[in-house]
């Protein structure tokens, strides 16, 4: 399958192997959907040996922070990140769901103290597949649906 239907980027990041349908969510959590932002290319429903169908996100001129990589892992746990310099892949790695998630997720429980007091949210991953986390404060568990809507 020819991926070059989507044009190559000179410098930046290609997030590959995103489960089909999650590409837009990846763009959303990285806050790339801003009119004054970077150039973003999204390919949806691309044929993939690994996933059947996949989405790909390419961002010109952007390199990801660790926090952003962790966020991607929660949305697209099978994603691979390619760092591009001068049209070449200079580094490639798979995202990994961390055992603890700090800061990037909001607790789904409206009565949780972390939603009303100044705190850094913290969650423990109790299962990676299906994804399930427990809030450090209120001890409630959140499943994938809760997590995606609170990133």
């Amino acid at each position: 399958m020819n991926e070059l239907k989507v044009s190559a980027i000179k410098e930046g990041t290609v997030i590959d192997h995103i489960q089909a349908g999650k590409g837009l969510k990846v763009i959303e959590i990285l806050k790339l959907n801003r009119t004054n932002g970077k150039t973003v290319l999204l390919a949806m429903n691309v044929q993939s040996k690994k996933l059947g169908r996949k989405d790909i996100v390419k961002v010109e001129g952007k390199f990801l922070s660790e926090e952003e990589v962790n966020k991607i892992a929660l949305v697209a746990p099978k994603a691979t990140v390619n760092i591009i310099k001068d049209f070449k892949v200079v580094e490639k790695f798979s995202v990994e769901i961390p055992s603890e998630i700090g800061g990037i997720l909001k607790c789904a429980n409206p009565n949780c103290i972390s939603n009303s007091e100044y705190t850094t949210s913290k969650f423990y991953v109790i299962s990676k597949e299906p994804l399930k986390v427990r809030c450090h404060y209120c001890e409630r568990t959140m499943d994938e649906g809760d997590i995606l809507s609170n990133l």
Binding site: N109, N111, C112, I113, S114, S116, E117, T119, C135, H136, Y137, C138, E139, R140
Partner: peptide, 10 residues
């Protein structure tokens, strides 16, 4: 004792 979950942890 607090009405919000997680208050004691905080």
């Amino acid at each position: 004792r607090h009405p919000k979950e997680g208050a004691a942890r905080l």
